[in-house]
Design a protein around this nucleic acid. Sequence first.
DNA 1: GGTAAAAATGTAATCCGTTACATTTTATAC
DNA 2: GTATAAAATGTAACGGATTACATTTTTACC
Lengths: 337, 337
Amino acid sequence: MANIRDVADSAGVSVATVSRALQQPERVSPKTRNKVMAAVESVGYKPNLMAVKFRSGKTHNLVVLVPTVANVFFARVISGMQEAAAELGYSILLANTLGNPDIEAHYAKMVSTSQADGLIQLRAQTPLDDSMINDNGLLPMVNACEVIECGKYPVVSLDNRAAANAMTTHLINYGHQRIAMVKGPDSSPLTQDRLLGYQDALAAANIAFDDHLLFPGDFTLQAGYQAGTAISQLPVTQRPTAVFCENDETAIGAMQAFKQAGLNVPNDISVAGFDDIAFSAFCDPPLTTIAQPAEEFGRTAVTLLIDVLNGKIRKAPKVIMPFELITRQSTGPAKHA
Amino acid sequence: MANIRDVADSAGVSVATVSRALQQPERVSPKTRNKVMAAVESVGYKPNLMAVKFRSGKTHNLVVLVPTVANVFFARVISGMQEAAAELGYSILLANTLGNPDIEAHYAKMVSTSQADGLIQLRAQTPLDDSMINDNGLLPMVNACEVIECGKYPVVSLDNRAAANAMTTHLINYGHQRIAMVKGPDSSPLTQDRLLGYQDALAAANIAFDDHLLFPGDFTLQAGYQAGTAISQLPVTQRPTAVFCENDETAIGAMQAFKQAGLNVPNDISVAGFDDIAFSAFCDPPLTTIAQPAEEFGRTAVTLLIDVLNGKIRKAPKVIMPFELITRQSTGPAKHA
DNA sequence: GGTAAAAATGTAATCCGTTACATTTTATAC
DNA sequence: GTATAAAATGTAACGGATTACATTTTTACC
């Protein structure tokens, strides 16, 4: 592979001149510039950007820890990240961690070992073990979507509590009194916040909270299906008339279970989701859900991280993205006894 | 950031000894080893892997050009790639190209500029412009999923023609005579191969091919919905009794349109997909489709590429992955006039 | 033509691990 | 104790681009 010295030799100038001709063309005479360009062409020179990165100490790589890229919501977030990163001259190193702390630690170490400039976490957790903290005591990190608010790192999040409140209120306004909730993993702050929002709405409507109406889940279709099956097997008098699922996959899984059990959505039971993934508009019936600006989450996280890297940020900001309640046909009036 | 020289000073040995203590511990005396380890700890040394990569000329990065990470099938493929790469000590640089040749070229250049060792293409196309061909005239590249068979690069693919034939035959066996096909983008070899398989099956059953039964698509839910709407508006006598969609998203979109038009799936019209994405088992009715080993595609592509990088491959292999026809409830017997 | 300022170009250090080669220390054997 | 082999350690070059600083060339003006 031809290097800058080959170009210099071929053009009959020094390596410094070649470098300048390529980086700051106005700094060399037009005649030299042409000679250099011709030499670049003739020897087939391609700069070794690894050398550039090594020397500059900036990799222009960002590591993103994704619990699972197979989650369509995350896929949208990643898509937004990738766009923003590309615009700003950065690359995304994607780590599919499967929630495994070892894998997370392995990828997070790419920052401390100078293979990446910064880190984006899509999962809430105390930031890794101490061994990967930088000199300044902090890792250049941004936390998005599922955030932990320790105040040390910028976060990009949604007011999950308010969103869950809005959705629960929507169901209450339809006359529902027995509203079940299919949760996400208990370890996730998302789960907690959405649960709180659900409780807020119940309290505001003077509906007693009943923890028999909480069903476990883990954001997968399968978990939704299981919860849906459990719900449909309840005696009619105990059965909720509406189910609020903490994400769309879960809601779609639950709807499937209801249909198989002969329950009509929304006539027998209303179902609501969270995320507004593409499939939600195309399931039967189309799903009422909370739309999150997923791509914007990604874009914002990347932008913030790059600001951190450029020292443009003093104290860790907390960006709250807007949500929108999307009313479709999976929710409707409660059938009163 | 402490470097290896700081460690050497702190331990009172030379940098070579530090390097050996860390890379080949058996090459230094136990006493020295301990001194070095203690020094590493005390100065907080983290090797600059950028320097290592620069010196070795190997980045251990693989660029993957994905048309869109938002496609759930690709998400599964990426997941498999990421696993295999991690096991083999490589990282995945994900490029969401949106099918844009400029973006593709930009990321493909990461190989010629020494930022990545190799490239995986998930979209069939002549490999980029000549400017990024390496000295040997070839780019270290593997083509997966949607392949182009120029014989120069290893490919990992499915026998799409056979799979489409199998699915079409399945529909014919149910007594369907008028079978529509909702295609992918015409530019894609997948579309062509699946169309051929469809035609093979028709021919084998002595059913005349009718290009009025071909509907355009682009693998999105929306395209499926549009095709479904168009089909449902056909006069009953011209309406197909079965629709084979070239991917699951399209099939799900089409089913939605049929339901809205009052058509029952599969009683009025059978629908089949391709890919077996997670949602296909949870839609209503569950979708008959062709399962592809998506994660295995990814794993295989990565393994092959690393073999190429290690010079273990003489001539470009062509790996054909197996498929499986998954029969669910979206297809059924044709209602005969 | 001469001088000073500006522009162009060149020289060489630098980033940080690795490793070939050189040198020193330790172990082994007589 | 000495010679020899083996083990341990050290020295310094190397990879490729950038850039501070030094030097040369050009330009401008009296």
